[in-house]
Nucleic acid binder design. Sequence first.
DNA 1: TTGTAAGCGTTATCAG
DNA 2: CTGATAACGCTTACAA
Lengths: 338, 338
Amino acid sequence: MAKSGPAPTINDVARVAGVSKKTVSRVINRSPLLREATRAKVEKVIAELGYTPNPQARALALRRNFLIGLLHDNPNAQTVLNFQEGVLDAIRDTEFALVVRPVDRHSPAMLDDIRNFLEQQRLYGVLILPPISENDDLAALCREMGCGYVRMGSAALDEAEHLVQSNDREMVEGVVDYLVKLGHRRIGLIEGPSGFRSAFERREGFLAAMHRHGLEVPPAALAQGNYRFDSGHRAANELLSAEPRVTAIFASNDEMAAGAYHAARERGVEVPRQLSIVGFDDSPIAAHIWPPMTTVGWPIREMAKAAALKLVAPDSSEALPSSFPARLVTRNSVAEPG
Amino acid sequence: MAKSGPAPTINDVARVAGVSKKTVSRVINRSPLLREATRAKVEKVIAELGYTPNPQARALALRRNFLIGLLHDNPNAQTVLNFQEGVLDAIRDTEFALVVRPVDRHSPAMLDDIRNFLEQQRLYGVLILPPISENDDLAALCREMGCGYVRMGSAALDEAEHLVQSNDREMVEGVVDYLVKLGHRRIGLIEGPSGFRSAFERREGFLAAMHRHGLEVPPAALAQGNYRFDSGHRAANELLSAEPRVTAIFASNDEMAAGAYHAARERGVEVPRQLSIVGFDDSPIAAHIWPPMTTVGWPIREMAKAAALKLVAPDSSEALPSSFPARLVTRNSVAEPG
DNA sequence: TTGTAAGCGTTATCAG
DNA sequence: CTGATAACGCTTACAA
């Protein structure tokens, strides 16, 4: 047990162990060129003294901080927070810490801001959430600054080393299959904002599956949203005012799906008896709205952990998978067509 | 415009400006003992070179990092995220960064974990969210470690310097006043978990106002929850099965209030016609549930900003307020008793 | 008011 | 394999 007072430094360890501080440094950094006996001796002293290397000093010497940055511009709090938890899972009991950096993707200064941030903080690496993860200029900036990075995304945005991805397209195809199997033929889509890769992938999955089933998708079955609640409300109103009315709606995220619930309720359309609704994300709203919503859940926390490990322990086996399967979470917003 | 390549250091500035690096250091640190002319000259060179002090080096020399820690045990995703935004508002364009540290308040090792964290990272200071902000041992630990701290809370937990507080009790009194004015007499309370100061304050506000209005609070009008959705559902079921039935329910947070919505719906009790419901937090669920929920919103982002400023700029006027007023957000979950 | 010298705790270089 | 010695970029004495 180390007694308190000034924390022991590498010099203390070196002195007590009777070696040079460089040798201690080698032990800390797991240098292979060390006699086993020396290593053991030093490690014993380290344990005795309760020594921990000072990250600030290491940061200065290595010109690199032991900080993982999280860059996001996210509309969904739960996603960001789950992601943070996942990153923590990966760096728990390491010297790394997680620094968060919300940014504004609509600001023309975004890239400059991030450049300053990276320049100042000299991060070990950054994790980038959608939608800004889709920005190739940002990835290029990270490369240029010599800052590690991993992008989260719903498509193959980058090399495996820099990417953790979900299979949105495939999942949405599964949603359509599920609805069709129940008997639905007129299915509407509330799209996410153009420019978002996830929105694109989800739309493509929808269209592909409809086509595969030989089902038509008239323009009136397609409505544009922007991933926000209000846009889902508006889009659902469009969808529900066309005749013959759709019997099911897939919304590209839960928030818009919740908006669709409200539109249906205002029109006296009962969910799921007269209208089935499926969302995407499995955010808390899905479980808390009435009736509880069927949606697609993706393992954000595990993905976050994998992403962080790619940065801090690229060789660990857990860092390997780049693609994570989502799953359909069936609740009570889907029924056979009325 | 600085050209790229190795970033300029204090030595470059000193050389170009023809002064010693200590003088540059004085300029950076706004030392008062500097001739104005010298300062101007150095500042000019700093601007020309695009020099930024290296935080790692400063951290080493000062034995203190320019990092603000956020300690929380996820009270609610949106709250945490809004808080993060508020902190960023405060430290934007400074050398500070925000590091997040979710902890588990049920873990017996929590304090030790935090101690290690503080020891390792040598944070400039930490911001502590409820409910762990109520833990006095944690505050003592910060003091002991020489780490600045500010606690968020719903009561006077600490000195103004270390506290940013909301007026939960008063707000809940206001909620009851509002319901009583509409004609409600039998009002139920869904409490938060015992041991949470916020739950206590909200309960006390409720009881005080009921008493002030000369209204009874029979045991059947009090139900215990734990701030989670399911507990709200369960508690509302208890409340709604007692006769005469309550005509209004105040839930200590929105998540439990959403659970109460579900319980009402399952029993065929219509909100707000047969039952008024009021929540607390103004979280996204409140706006997205049907009918949109009347709730109490508190200015979390501004509070976060003030808290962060107390840490990084204790003298700024914005850091001054320690108490922030919440407000009633009226939507459609309240009506006159049926 | 300014400069000099000596750290802060680590890693890199290069010689043994 | 190991150890002096010099960085890393800044701050804090202490002088001048």
